[in-house]
Design a protein around this nucleic acid. Structure first.
Lengths: 244, 244
DNA sequence: ACCTGAACACCGTTCAAGT
DNA sequence: ACCTGAACACCGTTCAAGT
C-alpha cells in the first residue's frame, strides 16, 4: 500500500524488502505528503509520528531530522491543504460575492481533507498558502472600504468560522469511522434517528420547544448549516461596510 | 494535593496511606469533579484516565465501572461546566439582548474552564445543562417570531461560534503553559511581538495589505474579537427576524 | 456490583551511536 | 548531515480474578 505501484516484486532470496540504494530519501515534503495521505484515508487519530515513519519504512526518530515534532508536521499538512484553495483576481467592488466564493472554496477543500481542520485552530497563519489566503481576504475588505482595524476582526472571525465548522465536521467523520459505517448517508441516518428518539422522549413541560420541533432541529445537513452561518456573517459584515 | 486538607496525618506504623474503610467511594460525580479539577489546573493534555485514577488512589481500570470511557468522561465534564451558566427568565421581546447576555455568560464560564471546549465540539447536547441552554436559546428565537426550521440553524451556528471561539482560546492557553509562562499578559506580549516581527519581514510586493497593517492585525484581544463576531451573528439573525 | 493488577497495543520524543 | 535502535515516560482499554 505504501509501495510505489511501479515496483517490481522483489526476488525471494533478497532479504531486505527495500534495498538501501532504492530506498526513498526522506524529505520534509515526503513526510508531509505521507502524513496527509494517512489523515485523508484513516483520520486524525490514525496520524502518528510512528505511523508516518512506518509508512516510510523507517523508525520514528528519523523524522526528527526534517520536522521539529508532531505539531510542526500538523502545521505543514495544514498549509499543504490550503495550497489547494484557488483564489480569483481580487475585485473589491464584488467583495461580498468573492468572500462568499472564497469561503465556499475553503469549505470544499476542507471537506476533501476532512480531518485537517483539527490541525488548524489557533495557528496564526505563517505558511505560504495561509498567507496567500490572508492577503486575499484582508485586501478585499480594505479595498472595499473597511477600516484596517475592523477588517482584521472581520477576517479573524470569518477564518474561525471556516475552521470551526470544518473541525466539527471532522469529529462527525471520526464517529462515523469508529462506528464502522460505510458512508455519510448511513451515518447521518443513524445519527438523526438517535437524536429524534432522544428528543422525543424529553419531558415536554421542561423542554417544550425542543420536544415540539424535533423534525426542524434535525432537518438541515452540513451544507445548509454552513451556508446559513456564512450568510449571517457576510450580512453582518455588509451592514458594517461604509457605503460607497 | 489530592488529599483532603482536613485529614489528620497517618501514624507512621500504618502501612497503607489511606485505609480501606476511610477511602472515598468512587462515583461518577467524584470522577467528573476530579477530571474537571485536572483540566482547570493543568490543561487538556494532562487529563487522562490514568491521571484521574491516580488522583483517586486507584488504578485506571476502576473508572470503567462508572464511566464508559474517556469520551463519556469528557462529555460529562462538559455538561458539568455548562451547569454553571445562569439563565434569565426568557423575554422574547428582548431576544437580542438576552441572546447577547447568554453568549457572554457562556463565554465567561468557558473562560473560567479554559480547556473544556476541547471536549465539546460535535456533541449533540444530551446532558441536563446542555438541554437547558438549548431550550433557552431555541425558545427565545421561536417566541420572538422566527420559524422553527430557521431557528434551528441560527441556534446551531451560535453554539458553534461559542464553542469554536473557546476552543481557539484553549489552544492559546495550552501554548502558554507549554512555554512555561506565568500569565496571559506575558504570553500575549511575547506572541504579539513574534507575529509583528514576522509580518513585518514579509515581502511587501506579494503581501501588501498584511505587511502594511501589522499593528491593526495584532490589535484586538480575545474579548474584542469574541464580541465583534457575536455582534456580526446577532445582527445577521436580527435582519432575518420577521418584523413584529 | 464494584474494584483490582497485569497485560496489550499503542503514543511522542530523546539520545548515544553509527554512516 | 542524516539516519537508526533502544529506551523513557507515558497513553486508553480489556480481562480474568478477586471481594
Amino acid at each position: 500500500m505504501s509501495k510505489d505501484s511501479r515496483d517490481v516484486p522483489a526476488p525471494p532470496w533478497r532479504k531486505s524488502r527495500r534495498p538501501a540504494q532504492v530506498k526513498r530519501q526522506l524529505s520534509q515534503e515526503l513526510i508531509v505528503e505521507t502524513g496527509l495521505r494517512i489523515l485523508d484515508a484513516e483520520g486524525f487519530d490514525a496520524l502518528s509520528m510512528r505511523r508516518v515513519a512506518q509508512e516510510l519504512d523507517t523508525g520514528p526518530a528519523s523524522l526528527y531530522a526534517h520536522v521539529s515534532g508532531k505539531e510542526e508536521l500538523l502545521e505543514l499538512i495544514y498549509d499543504r491543504v490550503l495550497s489547494e484553495v484557488r483564489l480569483p483576481e481580487p475585485d473589491p467592488a464584488r467583495w461580498k460575492e468573492q468572500l462568499r466564493e472564497y469561503a465556499q472554496e475553503v469549505h470544499r477543500v476542507f471537506r476533501e481533507h476532512a480531518d485537517v481542520a483539527r490541525a488548524a485552530l489557533a495557528n496564526i497563519p505563517t505558511g505560504e498558502s495561509s498567507l496567500r489566503a490572508g492577503e486575499f481576504t484582508y485586501g478585499l475588505l480594505i479595498e472595499a472600504g473597511m477600516p484596517p482595524a475592523e477588517a482584521s476582526l472581520a477576517m479573524d472571525r470569518l477564518t474561525l468560522y471556516l475552521v470551526g465548522d470544518a473541525y466539527e465536521g471532522s469529529l462527525h467523520w471520526a464517529r462515523m469511522r469508529a462506528a464502522g459505517m460505510s458512508g455519510p448517508e448511513e451515518y447521518f441516518q443513524a445519527f438523526v434517528a438517535q437524536i429524534i428518539s432522544y428528543y422525543q422522549g424529553l419531558p415536554r413541560e421542561r423542554f417544550p420547544h425542543l420536544s415540539e420541533h424535533v423534525m426542524d432541529l434535525t432537518a438541515g445537513d452540513g451544507e445548509d448549516r454552513f451556508t446559513y452561518g456564512l450568510e449571517l456573517l457576510l450580512d453582518g459584515i455588509e451592514a458594517r461596510m461604509p457605503k460607497a
